[in-house]
Design a protein around this nucleic acid. Structure first.
Lengths: 346, 346
DNA sequence: TGTTAGCACTCTGCACACATGAGTGCTAAC
DNA sequence: GTTAGCACTCATGTGTGCAGAGTGCTAACA
């Protein structure tokens, strides 16, 4: 539908606008790029492109600005072409990323934190990183570690090698070996269950098979439901609200406030990130966004997996006039990097 | 040095300016407050106050604005008077605070999170909350929970009733009872130590008294240093960057960027909060702040303790034109509230 | 001696007119 | 199909004038 020349001109306009944030005029194009065309010809083409819905004019005597539809075309064809020759990151960029990751990684949270930081620094936009908690882990065994005469710590080990714990009340004077007997019995009965399955009823059943202390049962219930809640909780990491203020579209305080308001509501951020838990890379442009408040923004989002399981989602949120090429390249790189780290988190 | 009338006028100017963010003129004062004085008289007094350094004039024909020195006087005398009749929070405010705290408290982190949120909502400024980690806890005992043929989880129980854990490598084929023997021995030798004391050398000594497996020793060292690091780490919770944008002094994007930049650097925030680990309430006005970047802001800060130990620090950061009275009242209330909760976190 | 009315002066903010420049759309010629 | 030329539009920047708020000073008053 678009001939090569229109395509070329559209691309030039998009990239120029992404760079300068100023409406692009026909003269500018003719001057900057050696197309062998006069401004008048380019004007005619631009007029066509506007009619086709790819360009918009802020006012009569301004240059033109790409529409959401134009970005869509641009991104789609870019994603296609990137399948063949993916990376456009400079050596420098990659070195920077590597060094940032090496900086201070002690646990999973640090990995996500670093990812958020890197994403925002490299793309000059807000980054959102969502860490899914493993809710599919299965119960392996539990153990009580005595603390005092009336309290103990319950440790639950799951088959993914992780451990959770909670404080529980025990009958006064219960001995260590009694506790061990109890935990052994309970472990046998609960083995293989998902943590979320271990609700009040099941626990009641299992527990009453081995003991009958009401106080301890109650605190067990509470501790386990706490652990289950913690495990099914998603965590959000944000980065780079500051960078946003460098973008000309966010010189208006009202707009900044709007976006900051959204980012401060953890629940909203989670919803946004969970909405696109597609596989692979997803670019949402302007009003394609379902959430009010970011309808004038674009978002590039990617989920990453480990053994087929979604571990998390990362996204870059910014004005529709976003450096899509760079953002996508960074995302692709981080994606690979993360999957390597996650496989072998030494 | 200031007679009563000057004092009174100064107070009126400060409070009016805090409310309106506009320079205050002599006519306004005469109209709003029934002082029995004409604008001209007030003008004379204001002229004196300016000479004394309490007032400043943005330009010749504007009203006057309180200087840092004026705020200092205002805050000091207010803190004094609040010792007698402390609270000025409305019933409504208190109810709001209570309900926010009840909302979703499952662990310590939630308490700090809520505090940050409440502080910023109630004061319309940025809130910073620093949670000190208990680095003074003493080792009680440790226990190994087997995971696989070559791995186990090490659980360390401390005398404050908390537990930490880490993954360690064990010699292939080591039995559960061998692990128990090891942990029992080690527990006896390490009992009563601070976690930070348990460094590589001490551990080497203790461990070689009970076993000689190099791999396990290495992973033990690593796990314990991780735990010690985590325990001595301070955590920061922020709230209400959005509220800031409601303040007229932050309509300028440059200033917002400046402050956001600071808030995004966790290390800087920690430094700021740690700098004032005085006891009790501390108000820092404008250039009294030692940190560049917040020299045009004021900060109200309070540390809270549990059994004499500093548990954390909370602060409100905003323009020098801050509602000191309200901020201080909220802080006082939260202070009491928190110390109650912390004493008995049911 | 303290207080006040009056007045000239200063500065900001706003509205308005005007020129400038960038950009377009259209037409006619190549 | 391409291009030069021209009239037209609109945003932006600048200068002017005016109203309003506020001050400082002086002289009169109690």
């Amino acid at each position: 539908m678009l001939n090569d020349r229109k395509r070329k001109i559209l691309q030039i306009i998009i990239e120029d606008y992404i760079e300068t944030a100023e409406p692009v005029g026909s003269r500018t194009i003719a001057r900057k790029h050696n197309l062998g065309l006069s401004p008048a010809t380019i004007r005619n083409e631009m007029s066509d492109l506007e009619l086709l819905g790819y360009l918009e004019q802020p006012h009569t005597s301004a240059g033109r600005v790409p529409s959401a539809q134009a970005y869509r075309l641009y991104v789609d064809s870019m994603v296609d072409s990137m399948k063949e020759e993916p990376g456009v990151l400079t050596e420098n960029d990659m070195a920077l990323i590597n060094s940032w990751y090496k900086e201070r990684i002690r646990n999973m949270d640090d990995i996500f934190k670093s990812t958020a930081k890197i994403l925002s620094r490299m793309t000059q936009n807000v980054s959102l990183v969502l860490a899914n908690k493993k809710s599919t882990a299965r119960f392996k065994y539990l153990k009580f570690l005595p603390l005092s005469d009336t309290q103990a710590i319950m440790c639950i080990v799951t088959d993914d090698g992780a451990m959770d714990n909670g404080l529980i009340d025990i009958p006064a004077g219960m001995s260590g070996s009694e506790l061990d007997y109890l935990s052994g019995k309970m472990s046998n009965l609960l083995k293989g269950r998902r943590l979320t399955e271990i609700n009040g009823d099941l626990l009641q059943e299992v527990y009453s098979a081995v003991s009958e202390d009401e106080v301890m049962l109650a605190s067990l219930k509470k501790a386990i439901s706490n652990i289950a809640a913690k495990n099914s909780e998603q965590k959000v990491f944000l980065g780079g609200a500051k960078q946003l203020l460098n973008q000309p579209e966010f010189q208006d305080v009202g707009r900044v406030k709007n976006l900051l308001g959204i980012l401060e509501e953890e629940k909203v951020v989670k919803d946004i990130l969970n909405a696109g838990d597609d596989s692979g890379l997803k670019v949402t442009i302007g009003s394609e966004n379902k959430f009010t408040g970011i309808k004038d923004c674009s978002m590039v989002q990617a989920t990453y997996r480990l053994n087929g399981q979604i571990v998390g989602t990362m996204a870059v949120l910014g004005p529709t006039r976003m450096e899509y090429r760079k953002v996508i390249a960074v995302m692709n790189y981080l994606h690979k990097y993360l999957e390597t780290i996650l496989k072998d988190p030494k």
